[in-house]
Design a protein around this nucleic acid. Structure first.
Lengths: 345, 345
DNA sequence: AAGAAAATGATTGACGTATATCATTTTTGC
DNA sequence: GCAAAAATGATATACGTCAATCATTTTCTT
């Protein structure tokens, strides 16, 4: 019933504990024959090392860093909150977690924050890859030290990180397109598209996915040029005010960016009966209220809490030299006014 | 940098290790004064016991059982698969997991399976509470032994279990209602409602939620009587064939139950151009295909994989005498044809 | 076959907690 | 103030792995 130990393996293989240890921990200087004997014994017994014992022995404090944008947005605030909530569990698991903030949307600040981690011998670093599209020397240096890199929410080129944890933004955009298509019930319409910046990979992916679906399956729905708002409320509000007063009847809005305060304000003024079908990203309190009041109809949400949990579990597994835990694909939650989380009421 | 040990606590409190141990492990026979000193030291140092060491010391193999319906449905199959995927991680964590199957939808079989666990000293048991609405003696006996009980997917009365892991089915039904409402774009319509059985709590909750929304916010959409299909393909197919040939123009279908094979077959014959807006539960391969072919428009999915992970993490935490890990609320995934998981293609 | 190199065996001490034993001190009741 | 009871201290072992040391054996080289 109890799991076999390395002693059991050694005994079965007919070698000493030391040799078994040399094999399973790849210390080298072992004859081919012994390697085979040990591996056979491992397979036969189904030996897996006892992580608790390994951790204890190494008295290893996994050292992780999360580099996150400051709480300028509700969304980033939720990330910070989730880390705080996990603090106790991390501590008992012997994980030391440093959280470093940088100014949101500032790729230079991010690069600087990352460079500050070099030489500190972190086991793993997770960060929001916002805008860090280009080659990053800090990242390369960190990886050269053996630090594992996980990107969150917004990816960097694949060859510069170990894992990406976030949604597929093309899919998200396609989903938004499908829902807006549905909402027209076969009738023609015209959609206003907004985004923070098309230079941000996640925003542009969403826009592209959205366009694909509308153009392919809902040909009688028109699409406006994308309004870039830098995720700033004022800019968004002004742009929309202009658009919504046009003669052309707007039937829907899709904001592929974050920051919906300006959008909601504009809608509350210009669309008081909520006739326009509106889809946005990320469930802030603003959006929650707007959903309940009928100004926003659907919110796609990344659920950063889950992403943080995933990142933590993944980095711990890697540090333990375990395969990543089985994790079903992340897809954005789709909120309407009827399935809002009870915590947010 | 490194975490304080119980020795550190004892030293700071000015008591022996033995006394500190007596306090933190509640062994009793300690003077009030010492208790206070130790607790103060714990607080001051932020001591939390090292779980790895504790586990090792106790050489404790958490003993868990999952009692699941057999793989009669895709949905239950996914549950089994996820447990299999987690096997390695469980093993390294010293968790012994027994999976017991019972005949799906048979409350007696479930009760019997549960009674078989009595006296085996399980730390935790998770099961699909299907139909086990009434007072269950096995459950009471298990809990009396100290076994922690988690219900999955379908709950039992609150006072008979420790946790429920599953979605809020009223919310799910409301969400379906909202989406069907959206899909009519203001036009009138008529919805056919189906369910496995209104005696199943989850099915009836969904129907109720659905009704609430349609009646409140979409008064010009009519709702049929609920067709009960016992989740059997034949019955579903026949009933629908009848309904879909009626003179009254059906605009939408909501199946609150599981088992969509019959539904999809009927639609493929009677609604070849996919004009009817159709929402179902659980993403089987049948549903996946139907989404891609346009016969089904939306699938609400519980993501049993995530539920299994949650259940495992929760039961382990409880067995370690830890608070439950921070877990964002479970809400059903909403699939359209554009955000299907890549694994299922 | 001798010497060098490689492989193996035997053993040990951490790591931090749980748990137990036994001796000693302090407190309590009367 | 004395005996009984309660509390405390001191100490030891086990848990399984990791990492190290040192002695010994086997294999290779020429």
């Amino acid at each position: 019933m109890k799991n076999p130990t390395l002693h059991d393996v050694a005994a079965l293989a007919g070698v000493s504990y030391a040799t078994a240890d040399r094999v399973v921990n790849r210390r080298g200087n072992v004859a081919e024959k012994s390697v085979r004997k040990v591996n056979d014994a491992v397979a036969q017994l189904g030996y897996v090392r006892n992580i608790a014992a390994a951790k204890l022995s190494k008295s290893r404090h996994h050292h992780l860093a999360f580099v996150l944008p400051d709480k300028s947005h509700d969304f980033f605030g939720r990330m910070h909150d989730q880390l705080a909530a996990a603090a106790l569990h991390l501590k008992t698991a012997g994980v030391v977690l440093d959280v470093i903030e940088f100014e949101a949307f500032d790729a230079r600040a991010l690069e600087q924050a990352l460079s500050g981690l070099i030489g500190k011998n972190y086991d793993g670093v997770a960060f929001v890859g916002q805008g860090l599209d280009k080659f990053s020397t800090s990242l390369t240096a960190l990886r050269a030290e053996g630090t594992k890199i996980v990107t969150l929410v917004s990816d960097v080129p694949e060859n510069n990180r170990d894992h990406y944890i976030g949604i597929d933004n093309v899919k998200a955009g396609r989903t938004a397109g499908r829902l807006i298509g549905f909402s027209h019930g076969g009738k023609p319409g015209h959609v206003v598209l907004t985004a923070g910046s098309l230079d941000l990979r996640d925003h542009s992916d969403r826009i592209n996915g959205f366009r694909e679906v509308i153009e392919a399956d809902f040909p009688n729905i028109g699409i406006s040029e994308v309004i870039e708002t830098k995720d700033q409320a004022e800019l968004m509000q002004q742009s929309l005010h202009q658009n919504l007063s046009d003669a052309s009847p707007i039937t829907a809005i899709y904001n592929a960016g974050a920051g919906n305060e300006g959008l909601v304000r504009a809608l509350r003024e210009r669309d008081p009966d909520g006739a326009i079908f509106c889809i946005v990203h990320e469930l802030s309190t603003t959006v929650c209220d707007a959903l309940q009041d009928g100004f926003v109809d659907v919110a796609l949400d990344q659920r950063p809490e889950i992403e943080m949990n995933r990142a933590l579990a993944l980095l711990q597994a890697i540090a333990d030299e375990m395969p990543p835990p089985p994790s079903p694909e992340l897809i954005p939650a789709i909120y309407v006014r009827d399935n809002l989380p009870t915590e947010m009421n």
